[in-house]
Design a protein around this nucleic acid. Structure first.
Lengths: 106, 106
DNA sequence: CGTAATACATCATATCACGAAGTATATCAC
DNA sequence: GTGATATACTTCGTGATATGATGTATTACG
């Protein structure tokens, strides 16, 4: 899919991926893969951004010798998801604008 | 609305705005305003981009002493609109991912 | 005559997705 | 046991892009 279209969706997708259960980088990518693909570098950029914006918190866990960072959604993050649902209404209206007059343009 | 969400939608919106009838900068902004706002600098950047990609053509017209550039959508531009409709299906699936499990998470 | 509207153009800036490359461990095949 | 593969996170550089600020120029209105 077009890179530009993904923007704006990515942050919200990551929030949605950890909404019901805390998760870590690799897991998040796997969960999102069927819907929207993103590289590791992209994900970690996003996670940093979300953390800076207090939309998620991080906790490090030792797992089989490897470090794992579990991400947890905050109330701010949950609000962001709610805001997205409002934005979605606008997007639908834009979609209508784009696809209007498909049949016949007298 | 979130800037990032607008990206990807903007190009296609501009194409849609001139789809049924050739139009010029100021008119395009006015037509899009109820759905999605964009500044002049943004629009002209987009128009240049679309022209480079052969999705639109330009023709200058003298109108009451002022210069007007009328933009016309090409076949490539029309294809772009069709592609967007395919992308839209993916976006809907992403939307489902984002909003899933809204009620109860066992 | 000044202000607002029309119309297009350029520049600098900030944001961002991504590929490439790196570090480190565990597991599995040969 | 050695190489390949999967897991897991990090850093860097690049290119794309939306936008505000600013500029130029004409017309219309009060």
């Amino acid at each position: 899919m077009d890179v530009q279209l993904k923007r704006g969706l990515l942050d919200v997708c990551v929030l949605a991926a950890i909404k019901s259960e805390d998760s870590y980088g690799y897991q998040i990518i796997k969960e999102m893969k069927p819907y929207i693909e993103l590289s590791e570098s992209t994900l970690y950029t996003i996670l940093k951004r979300l953390e800076s914006a207090d939309q998620i918190t991080v906790r490090s866990v030792e797992h089989e010798g490897r470090l794992r960072k579990y991400y947890h959604i905050t109330d701010v993050g949950l609000s962001r998801l709610d805001e997205f649902k409002e934005d979605w209404k606008e997007i639908l209206s834009i979609y209508d604008f784009i696809t209007r007059e498909d049949i016949g343009n007298e």
